[in-house]
Amino acid sequence: MKPEDIIRPENKVYARPELLTDRDTHYCPGCSHGVVHRLVAELLAEMGLADKTIGIAPVGCAVFAYNYINVDWIEAAHGRAPALATAASRLNPDRMVFTYQGDGDLAAIGTAETIHACNRGENITIIFINNAIYGMTGGQMAPTTLLGMKTATTPYGRTAELNGYPLAITNLLAQLDGTCYVTRQAVHTPAAVRKAKGAIKKAFENTLGKRGTSVVEIVATCNSGWKLTPAQSNEWMAEHMFAKYPLGDLKNE
């Protein structure tokens, strides 16, 4: 059988989603961001939201998210995405507004904005990529960095005495009356990817239904920052990250 006999439309099982731009990403090979971007792009197209979506990009590795998903975007200052989303949503109540943020952005510098947007129950979806490290700036400690984990600013491993404890901020957000759906997912296996997609879909539905704030945490890998191969990173994540950040719904109302 020749390749031409195989490469035929009826055999096509995989393609670039229409809302992913035709542009190479700056993400490292093996990074979880690519998978999550794809899920967001697929869902926005499948749910018919391309024309009514406003994405809010963070500062961090996903700073250029607006280059890859073909909807309207606003690039926020570091940590402030939920404040931008608050106004964008309140001033344009029929739009689908979501933020896409990393752990440093959401759980360190932007903690106040995160907690208060969730507490007000803003009709937005927060997609939170937790890879326990600052990727963009070169692998420094994040608020979610595990104890013992080596980073550029914890070269001998994070200690509670020096750096405090890893922050499971999603657990905090689940306590707030304004959140309607808080879940923790991963994208390291095909099954996990399918579940994560379902979670993001539910979050977007909540936003459209004005049910309050939905938070989807994706426990993610940063193989460059962790200095592991992509495959090793997935294993390391399952072995170490899930103990501190167990997968599953924290709140589903």
């Binding site: 404040a83 931008l84 964008a88």
Partner: peptide
């Protein structure tokens, strides 16, 4: 829309988000 923000920082970033739309 009138909103009391959690801080001046949040308030100006709400202005940024609103103005961007």
């Amino acid at each position: 829309v009138v909103l009391q923000a959690e801080s001046e920082v949040a308030a100006i970033n709400m202005v940024y988000g609103g103005a961007a739309t």
